[in-house]
Simulated assay, not measured.
Amino acid sequence: MISSAVLPDGCTVRAPAPTDAEGIFDLISAYNTTVVGFADCALDDIAERIVEPGFDAGNDGWLVLAADGLPVGYGYAFDKGGGGDVEVDMISQDPAVASWLYDRTMGRAREIGREGGHAQITVDVFAYRADEGLRDLLSGHDFVSGTTYRRMRIDHTGPVAAAVLPPGVVVRRGMYDDESRRRAHDLIVECFRGQFGFVPRPHEDWLAFREASSLFAWSQLCLLEIDGKAVAFRDSCDMSLETANCGHIAGLGVLEEYRGRGLAKFLLYDAFALDAAAGRDGTILLVDTNNPTRALELYLSVGMTPSLTYDGWRRVLPVD
């Protein structure tokens, strides 16, 4: 696909490099502040995405620079697993730059589909509900909102009591060997299978991502077992540490046949107690409000409150 949009005079484009992380951070911080009132991004997260396993910066990323050399736009297309699902994003306060990045990311998404031998691809974009410019751009190109996410938070103003473990349940904290990591990954895939936007990574890719990330640690991955079977998990990380001094639950799930036994509540209360003991101001997570497990009701019931709203936008299109 050849871009039909034109960049403003004086702009140049190149692939992002690890040394660009701070410039991209400044760009995204300013953009987010305009949209939601605060920066809402972490430098480590941006830096790691540029070198994330599976992301080819030379083909999959675009950094738009103004005549003074400062970033004015950033976009990427990321193959989520080789199955014809691609995540794209385009960030710029200049509508002309955003439109150009839209064309480039969508063109690359089609290329990824062709390279994978797919007749069509599914393209996902994750956007703030308050981002009217991006919402108008996406809806004007036949994207539809597939689901809504809410950021949930609970504040910790003092010590939090230790969670009470349900009878017959064993806690496994930290995944330090190949077998436990395989069990954890298989459980995560089973719990999230079929949910909007979830594409399981091959196990080796999942391992490589976690090993390369400074935000995720094997010590923060927790499993619950019943009769020797892993049935529930919590995956915490440091994603909200820099921006909010909060713990962050990146994933929480319970196998369907084991729901309703208080396992998810234990994992939440346990995270709250650990975060409070570590001096965190609160605990944050993101929930798909259309989750078939009625997760939003669970988080509200344990005292978490919603703040930011996001939409998952999707378009399915032929690669030719």
Rank of each mutant, 00 (worst) to 15 (best):
R114K: 12
S301P: 09
R183Y: 00
V88L: 06
L7Y: 12
L263E: 03
A295R: 07
L187N: 08
G107I: 03
V88T: 15
E115Q: 08
D85G: 14
R49H: 13
G23S: 11
A250F: 08
M304Q: 06
P8I: 11
D235W: 15
C191W: 03
Y310I: 08
L215H: 02
G228Y: 06
A230T: 13
I121A: 05
G84F: 01
S301C: 06
L252R: 04
D89G: 14
A96F: 04
V171M: 04
T19F: 07
F38R: 15
S3H: 13
F266Q: 02
L255I: 07
D68P: 07
N245K: 07
R234F: 06
A96I: 12
R193K: 11
G10Y: 06
D177K: 00
R261G: 00
D288H: 14
F55A: 04
Y31C: 04
V35W: 01
M90P: 10
D60Y: 05
E48A: 01
D136F: 11
P166Q: 04
A77G: 10
R110K: 13
E297D: 12
I50C: 03
A232N: 09
F55N: 13
D177E: 06
P8C: 10
C246V: 05
L215F: 04
N290C: 11
A244T: 14
V123H: 02
V302A: 00
E111D: 13
A5Y: 07
T105A: 10
P202T: 13
I121M: 03
S99G: 15
P53N: 01
S214K: 15
K80F: 01
G10P: 02
A250E: 11
S307Y: 03
G133I: 08
A42R: 09
T309A: 11
I2P: 08
V13Y: 07
G81W: 00
L207I: 12
G37P: 02
G54L: 00
N290I: 14
T122R: 07
P167S: 08
D281C: 00
R110Q: 13
D238W: 10
A57W: 02
H141I: 08
A217W: 04
R315F: 03
L252Y: 03
G262S: 11
A66L: 03
A30C: 09
G84C: 05
A130V: 04
G107T: 09
S236A: 15
L308Y: 09
D227C: 03
V13W: 02
I46D: 00
R110E: 13
V254T: 15
L255V: 12
A96Q: 14
L263H: 01
Y299R: 13
D311F: 01
L255Q: 07
W206G: 05
I188T: 15
T19V: 14
A109G: 02
C246L: 04
G54Q: 00
R182L: 01
R108Y: 04
T33D: 02
F25Y: 15
G61M: 01
T293K: 13
G113W: 01
